[in-house]
C-alpha cells in the first residue's frame, strides 16, 4: 500500500516534471513559433494602438477574438473578411448605440483615426494562423437537394 512519503514524492516529482516540460514548450512556442504564426513583423504602431483601444474599452466584455472573451456579441477574429472596413468603421464611429436585432453596443463614437487603428488591429488578428479557428460552416443540406 502507498505510504505517505511515496504520495509526497508523487506530488512533488509529478509537479516538477510536468512544470519543466511546460516551461520548455512555452519557451519554444513564444520564441520560435508564435512570432511566425502571428506574423509579428506586421505588428505596426497602428496595430498596437488598436490593441490598446480594444483593451481600454473592454471590448472583450461582450465580443470575443481568437474565441476568447464574452458571448454577448459576435466573434471578431475574421470580422474584416466578414464585414469589410466600411461597415466596421460605421459601427465604431456611430454616435448612437449600434443595435442590430435590438442588441445594443455602447456608442463609442470613435474618431476616424481610432477607428482605423482598430481596423488595423483586426486585420492583423484576421491574418494570424489559429490552427483552423474559426471553423468554416460545413453543413450540407440533404433534403430537397438533387
Amino acid at each position: 500500500m502507498l505510504s505517505k512519503s511515496q504520495a509526497r514524492l508523487f506530488f512533488f516529482g509529478g509537479t516538477i516534471v510536468t512544470f519543466v516540460i511546460f516551461i520548455g514548450l512555452s519557451w519554444h512556442s513564444l520564441s520560435v513559433e508564435v512570432p511566425k504564426k502571428t506574423h509579428e513583423e506586421n505588428l505596426t504602431e497602428q496595430v498596437i494602438r488598436g490593441k490598446v483601444i480594444w483593451e481600454e474599452n473592454n471590448c472583450m466584455g461582450c465580443h470575443s477574438i481568437m474565441g476568447e472573451g464574452a458571448y454577448y456579441a459576435p466573434e471578431l477574429t475574421k470580422v474584416v473578411e466578414r464585414r469589410g472596413e466600411g461597415y466596421m468603421k460605421a459601427v465604431l464611429m456611430s454616435k448612437t448605440p449600434w443595435s442590430p436585432r435590438g442588441r445594443k453596443m455602447v456608442a463609442y463614437g470613435f474618431s476616424e483615426e481610432k477607428a482605423n487603428d482598430l481596423v488595423a488591429f483586426f486585420t492583423w488578428i484576421g491574418n494570424t494562423d489559429l490552427n483552423g479557428f474559426p471553423p468554416k460552416p460545413d453543413y450540407k443540406s440533404t433534403i430537397n437537394s438533387k
Partner: peptide, 20 residues
C-alpha cells in the same frame, strides 16, 4: 498538477500557438 499544468494547453489550441 500532473494533468493541470500541461492541461493549460487546452487554452493554446486556437490562439496563434503551435499545433503540438
Amino acid at each position: 498538477f500532473i494533468s493541470g499544468v500541461l492541461g493549460t494547453g487546452h487554452h493554446y489550441y486556437y490562439i496563434g500557438t503551435p499545433k503540438y
